[in-house]
Amino acid sequence: METINSNAAYRRKGPAFYLKIYLKIVAQDIKSKMSYRTDFFISTIGMITTNIAGFIAFLIMFGKFPSINGWEYYEILFLYGFSLISITPTQCLLDNNWSLRRYVYDGDFVKYCFRPINLWFYYVSEVFDVKGLGQLAFGTGTLVYAWIKLALPVSLILILKTVVALVTASLFMMALQNAAAASCFWIQNSFWLLDISLKMKDYAKYPVTIFNDVFKFIFTFIIPVAFMAYYPSLAILRPDNVPVLTYLSPFLGILAFYGSYKLWMKGAGKYDGSGS
């Protein structure tokens, strides 16, 4: 029996292993969330209201102008839908990062350190925010609507481009939130950073050209907000005039996400479990 056990210990834990575990945890999590029925309904209503309110504000703001800085109304609507979709993975998958500060501060984070699996995975897998799926549906609806109104062709290559662009944007969003959350390993009062990271996504839905040069620079090179919708979607909206940064953005996205993961793990490594 000893040998069986120690063989199991060294069995490789690859992506398939993690995916299997993740799906199981998420299925259980959704099941248990449904069991708090009232809570589930109220938060669903809240999510729908928030999205509708945001959408109405958008209509009022941009409905008056046929175009802004060379961007026409439906293109901006496209960006809006695009940014709603690309925030979904952050919201669904990384929701537990919002609690990270509290766990670290109370010393409760130590309880995540005893499992024989990747610490970051184990931590973020604990919570799956179902509400994000509603946002996904809303964003997809908006995107499809804008797509039709813009009379974009429905070709496989364009859809593929859109998917790549969405994945890229999602990676940047996840990277920003992940890094902001990880700051709590170094900074005592780090909530404002996480809060800012959330607010940044609000800027993502506008074309970066409407900002002045200072903000354009900041949003491109310092806090990569422009990569959360603008640069990736240029490939679809302005196929004739695609900047180099757009082509680079999928790679930069992977790099940014990997960097934020490394930062998170480095922070967790220096965590000393004080507070117990």
């Binding site: 069986i4 199991a8 575990i21 199981k24 259980q28 999590d29 409760d108 309880k111 005893f114």
Partner: peptide
């Protein structure tokens, strides 16, 4: 490891579901 009163089990899940997840994580036959 059991560390003080900090439960390491999945808060919302029935115990048996936590056990099944642990079975996968630790690859118990």
């Amino acid at each position: 490891v059991v560390f003080g009163q900090r439960s390491q089990l999945w808060w919302a899940l029935p115990l048996v579901e936590s056990f099944k997840l642990l079975k996968d994580i630790y690859q118990i036959s």
